[in-house]
Computed example of a mutant assay.
Amino acid sequence: MNRFLNRLIESSKAESRLVIGLMSGTSLDGLDIALCRLEGSGLFSKVKVLQERTSCYSDDFKEDIRSVFSKREVDLEKVALLNAKIGKVHAGLLIEALEDWGVEPSEIDFIASHGQTIYHAPKSLHGLENYPNATLQIGDGDHIAIRTGIITLSDFRQKHVAAGGEGAPLALYGDYILFSSRLENRVLLNIGGISNFTYLPIDSSKIICSDVGPGNTLIDLLARRYFNIPFDEGGQIAARGKVCESLLDELMAHAFFSEPFPKSTGPELFSINFLESTVRNTGNTHLGGEDLIATVTEFTAQAIAKGLNLILKNTESALYVSGGGSHNSCLLESLSILLPKVRIDKLESLGISSDAKEAVLFAVLANETVCGSAVETGGGPVVMMGKISLPE
């Protein structure tokens, strides 16, 4: 038997495993790396985050990705080249992290690599009758496995699509395993480029996981355009601006917000083209950067609140926020006003860093594939996810 397959079998039988989760989201700010100690599987899983970091991307690398990111027409050669390059870059950043942490690659049981989403195309967005849901992540797992010498699980979203899902959001599985509670109704809200939530009622009667609208994507686009900075740190620019109500109303009138849960979306919809056309249609071309950022920040908050209010129906619940948006005070203040019966807290109060959450969740998904079973959540396809790449 291949020695790495044998290693995988041994890992599946061990009391615990060292697993690394890698996540690069639609914000393109860097690679989140989480070194986790995992015990058990399914609802008996226990996870301890031993180390975490975000390794920032160089500006050149970000621009490389943006050249193919969320665009319908791209240079196919560039996509092929980036599939290999992203895998190699991620492997290099992981090796640097292990060296800094004093951890040998041989100590790691396996890697869970999300890769980089470059296009998300659920049928609700592409509208083509003879084509299924689709999504594409690049940064091939074989390159990571070969360069690090560590077994790598990657390309998680394809199994979800194959089983009838949209490939997003996948937080449902990890949120259900790690954060279900018998003491309170919980909402796990992640505000990355796109906002998504998992609703975990006390009785687990109707778990819902769905994208709910834009997260940081429009805010970041405007921050780069008007202020030449990657994001609005802490919501400081939004706090200085004034919300344009006519523009906000038109943004909120988009058909996406009337579609039933669960649903998924991406920067393909909530793009700069979408915003610019709405600005023109509402006669608000005079707005400056601060007012635009204030408006799209409020748009993000209202989109989240509208979706959650449909689910929660004024029941008392606890909301735990993660992702880059969890650091935006202006956004969180709006959410607290729009969700008066919801106690809002950061994910840290549940023992996991807001910034590391998604990397940890992919480590959990890989753990299920190696030593668990398909988890029945009542809210998504019952599948195990991730393609396995061996280092030889």
Rank of each mutant, 00 (worst) to 15 (best):
L183G: 06
I138K: 07
S271Y: 10
H254M: 03
V79Y: 07
D155Q: 14
I144H: 08
R224P: 02
V212W: 02
D64K: 15
L390V: 09
N133I: 06
G21E: 01
T377N: 02
L319F: 05
K206H: 10
L183Y: 13
T135H: 10
A14Q: 12
E250T: 12
T377E: 03
A294C: 06
F231Y: 15
Q137W: 05
L247Y: 12
G323K: 04
L189M: 10
A359T: 11
S70K: 12
G235I: 04
K306Y: 15
E276T: 13
H126K: 07
G266E: 09
S41F: 14
E250G: 02
G40N: 11
P214N: 00
D142C: 11
I111N: 01
L189W: 02
G386I: 03
V360I: 14
F197A: 10
L178E: 09
S16T: 09
H126G: 03
C209A: 15
Q158P: 00
R17E: 02
D232H: 05
L332D: 04
E104N: 14
G325Y: 02
P230S: 06
V49H: 03
L22R: 04
Q158K: 14
D211Y: 03
L218D: 00
S113R: 06
S124H: 13
S349Y: 00
N328I: 03
I191V: 15
P214C: 06
K88W: 09
D75M: 14
G283W: 03
T297M: 09
G87L: 11
A14I: 08
L335E: 01
K357M: 06
S389E: 01
E129K: 15
G379Q: 00
R182F: 00
L292P: 02
N216K: 07
C36N: 11
T117G: 11
V19G: 13
N328K: 07
V74R: 03
K46A: 10
I337H: 12
V49W: 01
G234S: 10
E245P: 01
L94G: 05
E166S: 04
M252Q: 11
P260L: 06
S334T: 00
L221I: 12
G164I: 09
N196W: 01
T300K: 08
T278H: 14
E39W: 14
V370Q: 09
I208K: 07
L22M: 10
H286V: 00
W101V: 06
A303C: 11
S329Y: 14
S70C: 15
D64S: 14
L178P: 07
D32Y: 02
S317W: 01
Y226Q: 00
S271D: 14
P132V: 06
G102Y: 11
V79W: 07
E268H: 08
T297G: 04
W101E: 01
E166P: 04
A356E: 07
M385L: 15
L247N: 12
